[in-house]
């Protein structure tokens, strides 16, 4: 490490990762709706078309099923495609390709074929884009064996997960929360690949484990800061990998704090928060000093009006309250 740092946004970190991949390996290309001339609907690929040309930065028709399938086919053919889907909401049109093809072919071919595709999707609420653009459906993918699913929340992960995902022989889905793109911060100038598995302790604490991922990480860190002011030392865990889940890190934390709250922008029913809670119950029941708490989105299609959108998704006061509830406060 040189020790030098740069100021960078999450969006720029993802773009730098794509550039690095394109430069490092000729098999890499980017495809998706409006990723070329327009620069991507969240402007992640701005400038790449000019630098790399239409063969490697490919605009596709508005057909998620078609172009995701094409990406999977290219991966089977030896390429390392990066498929961008505008939002997870639209990816449902490509579910058949992802679940029935990408996730299964390695297993159904007895290991003869790998599908080293990386599918990037935006996810989450907060931009007043209404229900059809705002949902957090990460858990639907985290349910499927044969996929690896990761949610980079920090600049380091935005910069470093893509290359590792491309080198993985299995299909990898990367979820980029829409509220993270504009987050700015410092990053090591020589930041590079990071693992796509394993959870990370983002703040150490002894009183309660706050387990989260993606767009809720910074709300949770803010909640932990407020809890610290009330003399409650919260430990914040960033899942990073949604499939596989890093049980060891979670259980070690719960064994230390004896209390857990999961913060998940998905809906409560059948959520990742439900899965994490169940695993804590299975593996750390006798460590628990309070019922596991959850802060999830309200069970409504995400509303359009700002005040209702804010009310529908996890916010700092609810996280603080849930953490205090585990302490009987």
């Amino acid at each position: 490490m040189s020790g030098e740092t740069i100021q960078i946004t999450y969006r720029e970190a993802v773009r730098a990762a794509i550039r690095e991949a394109l430069d490092r390996d000729p098999r890499v290309f980017l495809m998706g709706e409006d990723v070329g001339r327009y620069g991507g609907c969240y402007a992640v690929s701005q400038g790449l078309y000019d630098d790399y040309g239409p063969a490697r930065i490919r605009d596709t028709p508005l057909s998620e099923c078609g172009f995701t399938g094409a990406g999977i086919g290219a991966a089977l053919g030896g390429m390392w495609p990066i498929v961008e889907i505008m939002t997870v909401n639209f990816s449902l049109l490509a579910l058949d390709q992802i679940v029935n093809n990408a996730a299964t072919i390695r297993h159904m071919s007895g290991g003869q074929f790998h599908v080293p595709v990386v599918i990037r999707m935006a996810t989450g609420a907060g931009k007043q884009l209404a229900a059809q653009h705002s949902h957090s459906l990460e858990t639907w993918y985290a349910h499927v064996p044969g996929l690896k699913v990761a949610a980079p929340a920090t600049l380091e992960d935005a910069r470093g997960m893509l290359w590792t995902a491309l080198t993985d022989p299995d299909p990898v889905i990367l979820f980029e929360h829409v509220m993270l793109y504009n987050r700015a911060g410092t990053l090591a100038a020589d930041a590079s690949a990071v693992p796509i598995t394993g959870a990370a302790v983002r703040r150490a604490g002894t009183d309660v484990s706050l387990i989260t991922y993606g767009g809720c990480l910074f709300k949770t860190l803010e909640a932990a800061a407020q809890l610290a002011a009330a003399d409650i030392a919260a430990e914040v865990i960033d899942l990073r990998s949604l499939r596989p889940l890093d049980d060891a890190t979670l259980m070690a934390s719960v064994a230390k704090t004896h209390r857990a709250v999961i913060i998940d922008e998905g809906w409560r029913s059948g959520s990742l928060a439900a899965e994490v809670s169940a695993r804590i119950m299975e593996q750390a029941f006798w460590e628990l000093d309070a019922p596991v708490g959850r802060v999830c989105s309200a069970e409504v299609p995400i509303p359009y009006p700002k005040h209702l959108e804010d009310a529908a998704v996890p916010q700092v006061p609810a996280i603080v309250a849930a953490a205090k509830a585990t302490l009987g406060q």
């Binding site: 004896h258 029941f285 006798w286 628990l288 000093d289 309070a290 509830a325």
Partner: peptide, 28 residues
């Protein structure tokens, strides 16, 4: 709480004799 029950069993403490301060009045 489960953790309190386990500790009480290990140490031979009588939960019935205690008052809880945790969530919903649970002994912690």
């Amino acid at each position: 709480s489960p953790a309190a029950r386990r500790l009480a069993q290990r140490r031979g403490l009588d939960l019935a004799a205690l008052t809880g301060s945790g969530p919903e009045g649970a002994i912690t």
